[in-house]
Amino acid sequence: MENMVPDAMCILRPDRDGVDQYVNAEQVGPRGVTVEVGRYDRVTQRVDKCHLGFSASGVALDPLALRYIWPSELDLMARLAGLRLLARWGGWSGEPFDSRSVRHVSVYGC
């Protein structure tokens, strides 16, 4: 299973209503601009975000809604389902999973 590792700096940033919002300029160039906007809700562990592309041909939207999960939470769910963690890497090339990893590939089995 591949999953992202939640960014604690984004998720744990103090906010009055418990919802963090952000805007990130991903690409800026002569042919257009790509911006990501999003909201993290710490209570529901939900992320709603959208990649917005602006160019001479118009605006393109690429929305994404997901619930984030910490690797330890995923491990607990697997244990409750009768599975155990067999291996975890920082990506599909088998790189180590460590504190700098932004994703993990976790292998579970009986």
Rank of each mutant, 00 (worst) to 15 (best):
M1Q: 08
E2L: 11
E2W: 03
N3R: 15
N3H: 14
V5W: 00
V5C: 00
D7I: 09
D7Y: 07
D7L: 14
M9T: 15
C10E: 14
I11T: 02
L12N: 11
D15E: 13
D15F: 03
R16F: 12
R16T: 02
D17T: 01
Q21D: 15
Y22H: 11
V23I: 14
N24L: 15
E26L: 09
Q27R: 13
Q27L: 13
G32I: 05
G32A: 13
V33M: 10
T34H: 10
V35H: 06
V35I: 07
E36S: 11
V37G: 08
G38V: 02
G38A: 03
G38R: 06
Y40V: 10
D41M: 02
R42I: 07
Q45D: 07
Q45S: 06
R46G: 00
R46E: 04
V47F: 08
D48L: 12
D48F: 05
D48A: 12
K49R: 05
C50K: 14
H51G: 06
L52A: 04
G53M: 07
G53F: 04
G53R: 03
S55Q: 02
S55L: 03
A56Y: 04
S57W: 07
G58N: 06
V59H: 01
V59Y: 02
A60V: 15
A60E: 15
L61Q: 08
P63K: 04
Y68G: 02
I69P: 00
I69G: 02
W70N: 01
W70T: 01
W70G: 00
W70Y: 07
W70V: 00
P71T: 01
S72G: 06
E73C: 01
E73P: 00
E73G: 01
L74Y: 09
D75V: 06
L76E: 10
L76Q: 08
A78F: 03
A78M: 06
A78S: 07
R79Q: 13
R79H: 12
R79N: 14
L80D: 12
A81V: 02
G82V: 12
G82Q: 12
L83P: 04
L83Y: 03
L83T: 10
R84M: 10
R84I: 12
L86G: 11
L86P: 02
R88M: 02
W89C: 04
G91Q: 01
G91C: 10
G91H: 05
